[in-house]
Simulated assay, not measured.
Amino acid sequence: MISYSITEINNLLKGEIIGDTNQKIEGPEELQKANSNQITFIGSNKYAKYWQDSKASTALVNYNLNIEPGENRAFIKVKNVDLAMAEILELFKLSTPVFDIDIHPTAVIHETAKIGNGCKIGPNCYVGKDVELGNDVILYPNVCVFDETIIGNNTIVWSGTIIRERCIIGSHCIFHTNVSIGADGFGYRPSADGRGLVKIPQIGNVIIGDYVEIGANSCVDRAKFSSTIIGDGCKIDNLVQIAHNSVMGRSCIMAGHSGLAGSVTLGDGVVIGGSASIKDHTTIHSGATVGAGSGVMSDVEAGKTVLGYPAQDARDMLKQWVAVKRFVKANS
């Protein structure tokens, strides 16, 4: 089992050790669940009160917290506990599933497909006509990549994911289980006789930049024409819907159950909270934040935080909620 001394861990983090312990650290854990051989973290005073009863020997602590570790226990004080914990998790990261054979004999690969050096393709995968895989791409079992799709170097695609035809995927991306890339956008119009619906053909594609991560069971639909675009560095949670012709800038975040309707535009660094929904043809400018559960019906200015349904300036919405609460209390 891997273990580290507190000094070895701090050599990585470049923090400040307060107190002392000779306990070897064998992994990280939550404050109230940790054992003596585990390191935990305290990010704010809200959690500091739990330290006394914790069995952990070591904790990462934000530098501005004024608490003491106690006997045979130690703190590593850092500027940002969340980022420091990310480095700790890297230390103890478990190995990924092993490929006994780089390209499994049950994989179906079209003769025109171009497979880069070091690629690994698991059982029952399908790689279609004129597909191009860059170097060191990993397709876990039961992945389908359809015709003329291009996938960049070092991208990882987990089981059950389907990437439809003509999509362009960047390098160093991660698609988790059962992601759908390039399914038809949701486009229908009433028929001329008014007795049914006419399907609008979706002839575009999806373009995804580098270092994009998409969570399990999320969907990015192909464009009606042109492209649905996900910019470099975007991080998309599980169960997220991105509709046809939407465009996301660089390093946007979308939390679980959120969704973009058709032709939504996000600037760079936009944050969409869980279960938030964005109306079609809406623009959310760079640096804006949409609170969880909100419904955005109109454009959002750069750097602004909106909240509620329909979404409006977060401060105004909070004032309304306080006023309603007082009114209910006064009349109850």
Results as ranks from 00 to 15, higher is better:
105 P>W: 06
61 V>Y: 08
78 V>W: 07
68 E>I: 12
52 Q>W: 01
46 K>M: 08
34 A>K: 04
60 L>K: 08
80 N>V: 12
68 E>Y: 13
54 S>N: 02
69 P>V: 07
76 I>Q: 04
38 Q>I: 05
78 V>F: 05
76 I>V: 13
85 M>N: 03
93 K>H: 06
72 N>A: 05
99 F>P: 05
76 I>P: 07
78 V>A: 05
101 I>E: 14
103 I>A: 07
34 A>P: 02
66 N>I: 14
81 V>M: 03
38 Q>K: 12
67 I>K: 05
107 A>F: 05
49 K>L: 04
100 D>I: 01
84 A>M: 09
101 I>M: 09
112 T>I: 04
57 S>T: 14
95 S>T: 14
42 I>W: 03
51 W>H: 00
45 N>G: 13
41 F>R: 10
38 Q>H: 07
72 N>V: 02
102 D>G: 14
68 E>H: 14
109 I>A: 12
54 S>C: 04
74 A>P: 05
93 K>N: 07
38 Q>M: 10
31 L>M: 00
105 P>K: 14
58 T>G: 03
72 N>Q: 06
66 N>P: 10
80 N>E: 12
112 T>G: 03
53 D>M: 07
92 F>D: 03
60 L>V: 07
71 E>A: 13
63 Y>R: 12
59 A>Y: 06
43 G>S: 15
48 A>W: 02
92 F>S: 03
63 Y>T: 12
81 V>G: 05
98 V>D: 08
44 S>L: 05
65 L>M: 08
63 Y>H: 11
33 K>H: 11
96 T>D: 02
68 E>V: 12
68 E>W: 10
54 S>P: 01
43 G>C: 09
111 E>S: 15
76 I>L: 10
31 L>W: 00
44 S>I: 07
41 F>H: 13
100 D>G: 00
69 P>D: 12
54 S>I: 02
84 A>H: 03
70 G>E: 10
114 K>A: 13
63 Y>N: 10
77 K>C: 11
36 S>P: 01
83 L>V: 13
109 I>V: 13
52 Q>S: 12
33 K>T: 06
55 K>A: 08
45 N>A: 01
88 I>H: 00
95 S>N: 15
112 T>R: 03
46 K>G: 11
76 I>H: 11
82 D>M: 14
62 N>D: 15
58 T>D: 01
98 V>E: 14
33 K>Q: 12
